[in-house]
Nucleic acid binder design. Structure first.
Lengths: 202, 202
DNA sequence: GCAAACCGATTGACTGGTCAGTCAGCCAGC
DNA sequence: GCTGGCTGACTGACCAGTCAATCGGTTTGC
């Protein structure tokens, strides 16, 4: 082969993960056979089990890789000097950009984990919760600083904010609403505008 | 037996549907065996196939029964003389009450259909979309009437509104947030307050 | 009245097909 | 010639859906 020395092991592992994203996005986790992943990756069936304990572990790895980035992004926004509103906008922006950058991966994460209460959602509940909690903290600090009204529970606001964004992504995933670069750009500011300013005129 | 003439057929069918809700809610659709449904309903395995073409059809029936009520409720709200904001509040109220009244059924519908893009979501996409569209219409009419600002796309607002509510239900379903009668009552008004007034003080 | 034919509801053992995961060995590079 | 990444045929378990048989109530014929 062309590549001679660099550990091919890591390449193959990555190859399998990337292939899994494509196949999971196309067929969904449940109707994906391990053979489909191996085929898509161009490796032998058994190699999947060389790198991963099970089919589940492939999905777990995909989720954890990405979710940790999201958690880091939220915490970075929270730690910044920006206004609470700008912090929320940064979070929304990160999520939208994640989708723009790799829609298939985000589709898999949302459809198979985040929204799958009975299967993988259970497994990753604590990681998912951490995201909600961090967003709630941004809101609570905003209330403390007088930037947000105090009669809305921060946890509640956090769920609404995250729910609104995820529903947008779902709309794109389901192809219920158009998903052009322009829509992505709009979504970032509109989510924040809706949640912070409200639908009623000021 | 005590009951003599009334068709027991219909009872058994209902019995199977009700049992299916419980089992689906407990184990999820995918890890539910048809035998589990039959056992829970106290009927023979084969009877499930007497009343339903397949395991899928049981879930389809459960979804359609409930979703048609939701669509009717949204359209009734839309047709009323209330303010746009009150219409949204009525929709939120209906959904929250649905959960309060039968959390297991709502759990099944949300987890297995509404949020399952790759399986049943696909099948029922047009029914789901109809709900989003009806909510968008309420928003659009509100904009027309000057009650809502016009720089937020009605489809976008509809997704945010519905997403915020569904995320609340998900929080209850996942047991991430408390679900007392008081929380239900609060949620109804807070969703509308958040979406219509926004987080920032007026 | 009564029995026989009838018929839909009900039963549950069985089958065919599907896959996740195993494992015995191959071979490329050192 | 050894090591470990790599191969893919194989197996055991699982389960949706089938179907032949039974049950129990109703109708028909006399």
């Amino acid at each position: 082969m062309a590549s001679s020395k660099a550990a091919p092991a890591i390449d193959k592992r990555r190859q399998i993960l990337d292939a899994a994203v494509r196949v999971f996005a196309r067929q969904g986790f449940h109707s994906t056979r391990v053979a489909d992943i191996a085929d898509e990756a161009g490796v032998a069936y058994g190699l999947v089990y060389h790198y991963f304990k099970s089919k589940d572990e492939v999905l777990n790895e995909l989720f954890s890789e990405r979710w940790s980035l999201l958690l880091a992004a939220i915490e970075e926004a929270d730690g910044s000097e920006a206004t609470p509103r700008a912090k929320l906008e940064a979070v929304a922006g990160f999520i939208v950009d994640s989708y723009r950058h790799d829609p298939e991966l985000m589709k898999v994460i949302i459809v198979e984990v985040t929204r799958a209460a009975n299967s993988f959602g259970r497994t990753h509940l604590s990681e998912i919760r951490r995201a909600y909690d961090s967003i709630a903290k941004i809101v609570a600090d905003g209330q403390q600083a007088g930037a947000f009204r105090r009669d809305i529970d921060p946890t509640f606001a956090s769920m609404s904010f995250y729910g609104a964004i995820e529903q947008q992504l779902s709309g794109w995933i389901f192809e219920l609403i158009p998903a052009t670069d322009n829509d992505f750009a709009q979504a970032k500011s509109l989510v924040t505008a809706t949640i912070c300013d409200g639908l009623e005129p000021r």
